[in-house]
Each structure stands twice: as structure tokens, then as C-alpha cells.
């Protein structure tokens, strides 16, 4: 089976000179739930954003489901994004409209622009949107404006929107960082379950070590834009993972974390 995501020597340098990604090589098998960990500024978000070019990588190659993302035309890029759900830390929903309308927005790429206008959304898309909301447990709040929902509910609406894309891959950028522990657990369980049910590959940037250990099959540790650790979950101890955040080995001149 072909890889869900392939990264080769991916580099990203910000205009201010900060090297956010410093040559990342990574292959993700389909159906895996993979956690990206690392301290703030290690490059987790940048890595996810570069995968679908919400940020432009400086060099290197990204391939998703065998389609080359880097160098794709804007039309080709849209076709690739259609299969990839993206979950944001701050949900990035349209606040002033209903949960339902946010979910139908997820159908635009597949069913055409009429899905952006409530009156024109085809009936089968409306039914599917209700199914997606049902799956995340929010069917009863379909009519509610998003800005009246709690953080955990909003994130589940965002997941419903990405389910509407019928994704093969979900990239989740700190999906639980803005949520309280209970809501965070619910969102992680949902991500794990839909990954298992539908064979969706999930790559989640998480900075809570516990969530990473509890929910992922494989853990990638980033430090200063490089892959520092790549282990399957069962062979990894919490201590080893905490080390990623803690001090670098003392031989390393002792200036951990604060470099640059």
C-alpha cells in the first residue's frame, strides 16, 4: 500500500531568518494515528501547514497519496486539499453562521460552489452534513450559531466539516490545546475512533505528552525543525518523551531550549 504522506528534506525558513524546518524526512503509512510532539517553536505547526501549503515550504518535497504537493498548480493543490481535513487549534470556523452551514462548507470542493450558499445546497449534501454532525454528537445543535457553542463543541463541528470532505488524511494542529481536559479527551477519542472506523490517517501535533502516549500509534519528536525521535508508541517510555522537552544532554553545552 502506498504511503499517505511522504516528506523529503523539507525545509522552511521564515522571512525573519528563523529556520522552522531544517530538513524533515518522514513517511506515514495509511491509517496510522501519528503524534507530532516537541516544545514550542520546534516546528510542529509549520510542518503540518507546509504539508498542504498553508505555508510555502522553502525547499524539499511533499507528497500526499502519491500526488506531489510542492510545485502543484493551484487547481491541483485544491484537489489534493479536498482529501485532507485540517483541524486548527482555534477551530477556524465561520463564527456568525450555524454549525450546519460550517459543515456544508466542507462539501464545496467535492460538490461545487453551490454548497457555499445555504439555499442552493443539494438535499443529499444536507443529509450527509447531518450525518457528519450526528457522528460528532452535535446533530441537536445543527442550527446553533457557532459563536454560541463551547470550545469542545466548536472543535467537533470542525471535525464534522472535515468529515464532510470524506478525507483520507486529517492533519490536526494542536486540536486540544485550547480545550479543557474533558473536552480535549472527547476530541482525541473522536479522532482516534474516526481514524479506526474509516481508515483515515491522522497526524496530530500535540504538546501534551499524555495525549500523545494515550492515543497515537507512532510518535515523532521534533526539535529545532528536525526529527529527533521516531518510535512506535509501545516501545516508548514517558521518560524518553519528556526528555524531548527537558534539558538536552549536558555535553550539549547546556544552552537548551533557548537557542536562537
Amino acid at each position: 500500500m502506498s504511503a499517505a504522506v511522504q516528506l523529503e528534506d523539507l525545509k522552511m525558513r521564515f522571512r525573519n531568518g528563523h529556520q522552522a524546518l531544517d530538513g524533515v524526512d518522514l513517511t506515514v503509512e495509511p491509517g496510522q494515528l501519528l503524534a507530532l510532539t516537541g516544545s514550542n517553536g520546534a516546528g510542529k505547526s509549520t510542518l503540518l501547514r507546509c504539508m498542504v501549503r498553508l505555508q510555502e515550504p522553502t525547499s524539499g518535497m511533499v507528497r500526499i497519496h502519491e500526488a506531489e504537493v510542492t510545485g502543484a498548480s493551484s487547481r491541483a493543490l485544491r484537489r489534493i486539499r479536498q482529501d485532507v481535513g485540517f483541524i486548527f487549534q482555534n477551530f477556524n470556523l465561520v463564527d456568525r453562521v450555524s454549525a450546519f452551514r460550517n459543515v456544508t462548507n466542507g462539501a464545496i470542493a467535492r460538490h461545487g460552489s453551490q454548497c457555499a450558499v445555504p439555499a442552493l445546497v443539494p438535499s443529499r449534501v444536507r443529509r450527509e452534513a447531518m450525518d457528519c454532525l450526528e457522528r460528532v454528537g452535535l446533530a441537536h445543535l445543527a442550527d446553533r450559531r457557532v459563536d454560541t457553542l463551547s470550545g469542545g463543541q466548536r472543535q467537533r463541528v470542525a471535525i464534522a466539516r472535515s468529515l464532510m470532505q470524506r478525507p483520507r488524511l486529517i492533519l490536526a494542529d494542536e486540536p486540544v490545546a485550547s480545550l479543557d481536559p474533558a473536552a480535549g479527551t472527547a476530541v482525541m477519542e473522536l479522532l482516534r475512533d474516526i481514524s479506526a472506523e474509516r481508515g483515515i490517517t491522522v497526524i496530530a501535533a500535540l504538546h501534551q505528552v499524555d495525549f500523545a502516549l494515550d492515543y497515537s500509534e507512532r510518535i515523532i519528536g521534533l526539535r529545532a525543525g528536525r526529527v529527533e525521535l521516531d518510535e512506535s508508541n509501545d516501545r516508548l517510555s514517558a521518560e524518553r518523551l519528556h526528555e524531548l522537552y527537558g534539558p538536552a544532554p549536558l555535553t550539549d553545552s547546556g544552552t537548551r531550549g533557548q537557542r536562537r
Binding site: L54, R79, R81, V84, V94
Partner: peptide, 18 residues
Amino acid sequence: VLEGVRATGAPEHSVIFG
């Protein structure tokens, strides 16, 4: 908000409406 809709693969004109 724009990024959220663009990331679904929606073309620009439907980002306007959506």
C-alpha cells in the same frame, strides 16, 4: 476563518460566499 475554508480545497469564489 479564510484559512479554515481554503484548507478544505474550496476555490476562492466560494470562500467569498462561504
